[in-house]
Design a protein around this nucleic acid. Structure first.
Length: 480
RNA sequence: CGGGAAAUGGCUCAAUUUGGUAGAGCACCUGGUUUGGGACCAGGGGGUUGCAGGUUCAAAUCCUGUUUUCCCGACCA
């Protein structure tokens, strides 16, 4: 990988300085720009279009499970935020406040939503009367604000775009099922559309969401071996319902509290796409969510014949539903090749006098740079196949990377040594104690528990830190 | 939030050490020649140096504050 030929200048080598490489790719691919306020991003067309495609894919999946979209306000009165104590405690350090309306000081300050559980509860408290009103399966696409200290484009910003789903149910069982169902939706979307392999499972007590009974997560591994929590789904039981008095009459005419869930996935996954698939030439986008799937590059584009053929090709591909563009500018072909690569466009099609003569085109894959000659008449059926192959190959390569960077450890010495020598995750047994979790993090220089997988392996009988009886197998890793 | 670095045209940087009124390459615009891995020639437009104060005859340069960015750490549903 380190010998990888660099076709694009101005991007730091990935293995030389991963953090700088990330920043360079974001800038060179023109995904976002900084604004006057720290941590508040300008999503530029290239970046926003990726998000729109992720939205479209997820939204479709949500609706298939009966979810409806709604829109709740931006502001939350302080008194409302304070109703659920764990929740406030968790979010208090990172909320921003509106204190004035015009020139006058407000009687009660308003927080800019860091998440909207309390707003949904407040609404449902009034709206829900009977078991016939349940379940409510709501989602909103919006942005939220969390006053982070350290910010990085997409990975951790103060304002970020996401969707937050909120549901209430008559029974805990139904809510718990919904929690896992939505995690599965995330898993399917991220693995299928974003070609990012995942591990998933339950968060430990100390890592779960403020106010939740259980938090489930999908975790991806970046190229530097660090974990990125890419989506979470929470089961609340009736904790919020009790705090907000959200009750309904069941069939026996008895008042009961509802059971609640919430789940979110943010523009952070764009960071994951960059760090899982990108290389030293820039972005590499999975075909399914790439805003442009193929860039037609006419060669010797001053020739009428070439332009005419390229235009015909463009029309044919668009007709077929492929997101195709053509670059008819007077830049040189070499420039256009580099541009296609920086932007991560999955394929380019080279078409020049030679191709026209032979009634063929050259398709070049972004991920492997493989050149494929395709007969002109077959391109509309061949290109979709090539795009599908790229999608699969990208997933498989990332999966291979993930699998080969997961190790196991039975003793602390072994774990510390392995974290020092190799990037990635380490599976280990754990007694369930918060203290051991903290000690492991300290001893390894920052590896936290990522999740307790749904299917645990038995590596030993004892907790890796304290040696007491092990309760769970946990994935540990350094994270973003 | 701590430690370090930085902020000069869209980008990368020079001029800062030793104060003297901002320069280059790339990008952009016009015309021409080019066109198979970031083309070439000629001409042109664009910045008072992140912001606010201070010192000085004079500040990109020195001082103070502040904002933003980057790197490392802490924190982070």
């Amino acid at each position: 990988m380190s010998k990888e030929k660099k076709y694009v200048k101005d991007i730091t080598s990935r293995d030389e300085n991963f953090a700088q490489w990330y920043t360079d790719v974001v800038r060179e691919a023109r995904l976002c720009d900084y604004s006057a306020v720290k941590g508040c991003l300008i999503y530029m067309p290239n970046g926003y279009a990726i998000w729109e495609n992720i939205q479209a894919d997820l939204d479709r999946r949500f609706k298939e499970t009966g979810v409806e979209n709604v829109s709740l306000p931006l502001l939350i009165p302080e008194s409302l935020l304070e109703k659920e104590s764990d929740h406030v405690e968790g979010f208090a350090p990172e909320v921003a406040w509106v204190t004035h309306g015009g020139l006058e000081r407000l009687e009660e300050r308003l927080c800019v939503r860091p998440t909207s559980e309390v707003l949904f509860c407040d609404h449902w408290q009034k709206d829900v009367k009977s078991y016939r009103d349940l379940p409510k399966l709501y989602n909103q696409w919006n942005s939220v604000l969390r006053w982070e200290k350290t910010t990085r484009p997409f990975l951790r910003s103060r304002e970020f775009l996401w969707q937050e789903g909120h549901t209430i149910h008559a029974t805990a069982k139904e809510a718990e099922e919904r929690t896992q169902m939505m995690l599965k939706v995330y898993y399917d979307c991220v693995t299928e559309a974003l070609a990012i392999p995942l591990i998933c499972g339950r968060k430990t007590e100390s890592e779960k969401f403020a106010g939740a009974e259980a938090t489930y997560t999908i975790e991806a591994m970046m190229h530097d071996g660090k974990a990125l929590q890419s989506g979470t789904s929470h089961f609340f039981g009736d904790g919020f319902a009790k705090a907000f008095d959200v009750k309904f009459l069941n069939k026996n005419n008895e008042l009961e509290y509802v059971n609640q869930t919430s789940w979110g996935l943010s523009t952070r996954v764009i960071g994951a796409i960059i760090m899982v698939h990108g290389d030293d030439s820039g972005l590499v986008l999975p075909p399914r969510i790439a805003p442009t799937q193929t860039m037609i590059i006419p060669i010797a584009s001053h020739k009428n014949e070439v332009i005419k053929e390229a235009e015909k090709l463009l029309a044919t591909l668009k007709e077929k539903g492929i997101r195709a563009k053509a670059d008819f500018s007077d830049k040189t072909p070499g420039w256009k090749f580099s541009e296609q690569e920086v932007l991560g466009i999955p394929t380019r099609i080279e078409i020049g006098p030679k191709e026209i003569e032979n009634k063929e085109v050259v398709v070049v894959r972004r991920d492997t740079r493989e050149k494929i000659k395709v007969a002109m008449k077959d391109i509309e059926t061949e290109l979709p196949k090539i795009l599908e192959t790229i999608q699969k190959d990208m997933y498989n390569r990332a999966k291979e990377f993930l699998d080969s960077h997961i190790d196991t450890a039975v003793t602390m010495d072994e774990m510390v040594k392995k974290f020092k020598e190799k990037r990635g995750f380490i599976k280990a047994m754990w007694c369930g104690d918060k203290e051991c979790e903290g000690e492991i993090k300290y001893a390894t220089g920052g590896a936290s528990s990522r999740c307790i997988p749904f299917e645990e392996e038995h590596l030993s009988d004892h907790c890796i830190f304290c040696g007491k009886k092990a309760k769970h197998m946990v994935y540990f890793g350094k994270s973003y």
